[in-house]
Simulated assay, not measured.
Amino acid sequence: MPDIGSERGFSDFVVYVDESGDHGMVNVDPNYPVFVLAFCIFYKGHYLTRVVPSLQKLKFDYFGHDLVILHEHEIRKEKGDFRLFKDRADKQAFMGRLSTLIDDSNFILASCVIEKHRLSSRDELDNPYHLALRHCLETLFDFVKEKAQEELVTHVIVEKRGAKEDDELELEFRRICDGDNKYQRDLPFSIRMAAKASNSAGLQLADLVARPIGRHVLNPAQPNQAFDVLKRKFYCEGGRQAVGDGYDQWGLKHLP
């Protein structure tokens, strides 16, 4: 079967984006003074055949249907649909299943963590979201160039937040892709906004990975089982076979 997607100018990859923390600078939460942006880069073939079916199976097993939307905050606080756990062991079994699903899902992570309490320059203080977005898009370009797909369009899917915020984000996204980046060239990315109700598997996985990244940057010495799974997925200098923390300030940027 011909690759219709590439014939139409689309790359083999799709990116799902989510955030953790507040990007506002007025009232910085002393317990979580960071803003995290996480790009989950999926090979479309793997996403269709492995990731989506695995997530649907998890939902049918635990909820009996697939309308539940996995949300890290609600799972952690056991709110809404996630009040179903019979006891601590039941929740731990669910979390173990979720961790295995993420571990088995073959995606690449590109993330940027803004330590808001350490920012100083005027440009940085203006909008941590825009600062993180630029770094993540530049890393994404490094990745698609490595895969020889820099001439094809890769779609970047972000969750809707509100009309004003969405308009500002789309404007900033297009400005970066129109040349306001460290490469000073057009970047081959197209943004799409999706409502949470779209029940996108990719957006839900992006939601689950963002907070563990922020917790790791805030306190690297603290045990963080979720991050231990994720650190094998970061885009690395030297490729996926790189050892140690080759992802640091590469696939995982933290500023300043």
Rank of each mutant, 00 (worst) to 15 (best):
R134Q: 15
G214E: 08
A206P: 06
D166P: 07
F143Y: 15
D103A: 13
I157M: 11
H155S: 15
I108N: 01
M193A: 09
K147V: 01
I213G: 00
K147T: 02
N219Y: 03
D207P: 03
K147D: 04
L205P: 02
L140Y: 03
D126F: 10
E165Y: 08
H117C: 07
D167W: 03
E151L: 10
A89Y: 03
A210Q: 07
Q222K: 14
E172H: 15
E168P: 00
H117E: 01
C112Y: 08
L133G: 03
F107T: 00
Q149I: 09
R97K: 04
I176Q: 10
E150W: 02
D180Q: 14
L125Q: 11
N127A: 05
H130P: 00
F107S: 01
I108M: 12
L203M: 12
F143R: 01
L109A: 07
R174V: 13
E165F: 06
L203T: 09
P188M: 01
I176D: 12
I114M: 03
L208R: 07
L98G: 08
D166L: 11
G179D: 05
E172I: 15
L98R: 10
I191G: 05
A194T: 09
N224G: 13
D123K: 11
A210K: 04
S120G: 15
I108H: 10
S198T: 13
V153T: 14
N199A: 14
I157H: 11
H216R: 12
D90E: 02
S200A: 02
F94G: 09
K145N: 13
E146M: 07
N181R: 03
L140F: 02
E165N: 02
C177L: 02
D186V: 03
L119G: 05
R185K: 05
N219S: 10
K116W: 00
E168W: 04
V156Q: 09
Q225L: 13
V158C: 10
R134W: 08
M193N: 01
L218G: 12
V153P: 03
A197Q: 15
T154H: 08
E151S: 11
L133N: 14
E146A: 14
T139N: 11
A194Y: 10
K147G: 02
R118V: 01
Q92H: 09
M95Q: 15
A148T: 15
R134P: 04
D207C: 02
R122Q: 13
G179K: 07
M95P: 05
